[in-house]
Nucleic acid binder design. Structure first.
Lengths: 243, 243
DNA sequence: CGGACACTTGAATTCAGTCAATTCGCGTGG
DNA sequence: CCACGCGAATTGACTGAATTCAAGTGTCCG
């Protein structure tokens, strides 16, 4: 069995019942707006683990709301290294550019099977014209993404590896928690040591050493597609010690 | 004499004649809109080198357009280290948040004397309601800032010190060039080695070593408030080799 | 049960950090 | 105009965190 249950090619899910709704672009919409919103949804698709939603240099004419699954956004360097920019979860909005005909400058790859909702440029423009709250929400999403990136830049630039890892994990655990995951038991965690290493700017070998250290300290055990938090308080304390 | 001529406490400059206009939020405004814009400008102020525009944790009720001068945005860590997030120039828009009553999570400090144009939250809201192009422009500004941050994160996380420095300098030189500075001669450069080091995630001692290396290679000489580019092509080539 | 990939570990190396001592350059005040 | 003082830049010696290389071992999944 794969990590997460394969997503059936199922009937389209309505916006109203979509599990990602609480975290998505349209979280503040009224019932009436939601109906309109749904009409302008272009397509609903699935990705298999390993598939790209888009690649650096692509010019996708849509933006995407991730309904279910994990997606990794990253930039690739000329020497083949990656910098993971963000991990996207249910509700996250990806691929939007002010000018959709301009190339996107990072890649997005599914790390698990995913279900995704697409909006064409045309429909996005119509939605934005229709609803001022959606504009507000879009600006707010961009702001959040920028803040996350600034924070990441800060700890990647300045903190030692152990704290980078702690901060990164707390960040992800909080997001999972908000989505109803019980972090007191073993959780599906589809990122490899290498994925995490690329996110916090260290090598996978060093990532492993630091991971071992946190495990031996009985704080958190993170490997083989699972994470088990033994002492969230201690982990949060480590993370908090950065700022 | 100070690095840059002291800014006289002069008469308010009109938006129309403001030197930052070409790079600013309102760069696409019509003549008519510009007049309206100017009416809603709240105040025009000056900062002395070293002054804070705002500090992490503040809740300024205005956003700012930098008219003239250099401003450094940075986050501070608990151990006293800084991560410089961006260097702002003429035309850059600072301090905006979707909810202006929420605290800002980084600081902005003048590194030279600056002239600044403020917009109160109330007036920003009115401007945005008045002009859809301003909304568009705001989203576009946010997008650019996020892209810059993602790029910085990538090279800070993955590149060796020499390439980080090259990329950072090319970035700044390009911005200066866009603002009409002739980069073929010695240029005012008010950042210390320490400022640059904090931007690219290394120590000032190591920054110095790398700076010496680039100088000995006859590529660029950067110290004591001046930068002199000897071989911009070579510098750009170094920077380009990151991605 | 076997193959692939993820993870682990050790040893050697290297890039960058730390500490400390000068030197340099600029602005101030005599 | 020169001397002084201070912050910035430089240098050397040493330390240390993280990388590299290489050889395992463990786990998952078909």
């Amino acid at each position: 069995m794969s990590l997460l249950p394969k997503l059936p090619i199922e009937e389209k899910i309505s916006c109203e019942t979509c599990s990602s709704r609480r975290h998505a672009w349209f979280k503040q919409c009224s019932q009436k707006d939601l109906e309109h919103f749904q009409l302008l949804r272009s397509t609903q698709t699935t990705l298999k683990a390993g598939d790209y939603l888009f690649m650096e240099g692509d010019t996708p004419n849509s933006a995407y709301t991730l309904q279910e699954g994990w997606i990794l956004c990253f930039k690739t360097l000329s020497n083949g290294q990656r910098q993971v920019l963000s991990v996207a979860f249910s509700g996250d909005f990806l691929g939007y550019r002010t000018k959709m005909n301009q190339a996107i400058n990072y890649s997005a790859m599914a790390v698990t099977d995913c279900r995704i909702c697409s909006f064409s440029e045309k429909n996005i423009i119509q939605l934005l014209q229709h609803s001022p709250e959606l504009i507000q929400s879009l600006i707010s999403i961009q702001e959040t993404q920028a803040n996350t990136c600034r924070t990441r830049l800060t700890y990647v630039g300045q903190a030692p590896a152990k704290l980078k890892l702690a901060y990164f994990l707390v960040d992800i655990l909080n997001k999972l928690k908000m989505r109803g995951v019980d972090i007191n038991q073993s959780i599906d965690f589809p990122l490899t040591h290498e994925d995490v290493a690329d996110a916090i700017g260290i090598t996978s070998v060093h990532m492993c050493r630091v991971a071992v250290e946190l495990r031996r300290a009985n704080i958190v055990d993170c490997r083989h597609n699972h994470i088990r938090v033994h002492d969230f308080e201690a982990l949060k304390e480590l993370a908090a010690s950065v700022f």
